[in-house]
């Protein structure tokens, strides 16, 4: 073996061994628990799938993730657009506005929403004051609260890929469309939107995947009224010490995430070109 290869190997070895021992082995160990229940090799999976309650949890997890992905791309659109249009101070202002929340702990952000969404909290008082409602709405400990919190946490993940896609659009294509007689709507529908699509799909998929595994925000804002798969996994361990069920739930979650990832990999922002020399 050449000297260069040995050096490369020595550089990679610590991280590979670390990940092997601290990540791959624990995952393998956990998943093995899913198949070693006394009741039979696949009994954990049939328990999860046969139970009406667990099925509802899984459906709810999907619905919330889907709704969150949909809402985030809608809200991401105007922000990504103006980021391509602004310059100088206002550009920096808007960009920091998107990046700043990234740096704040999800726990802190979720806690903020608990204060804001309370039954007698500022948002409800505001809604009553401007006459939208006369009774406080219940915004907390249900799917509404979960979605508000998750949209807030995940929105930057949708904005950045969309902004990237918009930035890559050659402005002369829009001029060409204009010159060929297309109105604003035609140019949007036939040129701008299709060219934004990779960023849009990428952002939406990313948000969807992250939503599926979300734990803190649904646990605090949803509580026992809006249980998601990750909360179910945690409760298997904390409340019932049912490791094999937790393992099976984890495996199901991971398989779904990886399957979606495989389908949409080409749209996703990470790793793209990061190692392309």
């Amino acid at each position: 073996m050449k000297r260069r290869h040995i050096e490369t190997l020595l550089l990679l070895a610590p991280a590979v061994i670390f990940l092997g021992l601290a990540f791959v082995a624990p995952l393998a160990r956990l998943f093995s628990l899913a198949f070693t229940d006394e009741a039979g090799m696949f009994s954990t999976f049939s328990t999860l799938i046969d139970s009406e309650v667990y099925r509802r949890v899984m459906v709810n997890t999907f619905l919330v993730a889907f709704a969150v992905a949909l809402i985030t791309v809608l809200l991401a659109w105007p922000v990504a657009y103006i980021l391509t249009r602004l310059k100088g101070f206002w550009f920096a202002f808007a960009l920091y506005g998107v990046l700043f929340p990234f740096w704040i702990s999800v726990l802190v952000r979720t806690f903020s929403w608990m204060i804001l969404l309370e039954r007698n909290g500022p948002l409800n008082r505001f809604l009553i004051n401007i006459g939208i409602t006369d009774k406080p709405l219940s915004l907390l400990f249900n799917d509404t609260g979960v979605m508000i919190g998750m949209v807030h946490v995940l929105l930057p993940y949708a904005i950045l890929p969309l902004y990237g896609a918009m930035l890559r659009i050659d402005q002369r294509l829009l001029l060409a469309s204009d010159g060929l007689g297309a109105g604003l709507f035609d140019t949007f529908r036939r040129i701008y939107f299709p060219l934004c699509l990779p960023g849009l799909v990428g952002g939406a998929t990313f948000v969807f995947l992250l939503s599926l595994g979300f734990f803190i925000t649904p646990a605090l804002l949803g509580g026992s009224n809006a249980i998601t798969l990750s909360m179910l996994i945690a409760s298997f361990i904390n409340d019932r010490l049912a490791w094999s069920l937790a393992a099976a739930g984890s495996l199901i979650l991971l398989v779904i995430v990886l399957a979606l990832l495989a389908v949409t990999a080409r749209f996703l922002p990470f790793g793209k070109g990061v190692y392309a020399r």
């Binding site: 050659d170 002369r172 294509l173 469309s177 010159g179 007689g181």
Partner: peptide
């Protein structure tokens, strides 16, 4: 531009 009925060929073409 869209109301002028012109045909424009761009530098580097700007093909969709």
């Amino acid at each position: 531009a869209r109301r002028r009925n012109i045909g424009m060929v761009f530098q580097n073409y700007a093909l969709f």
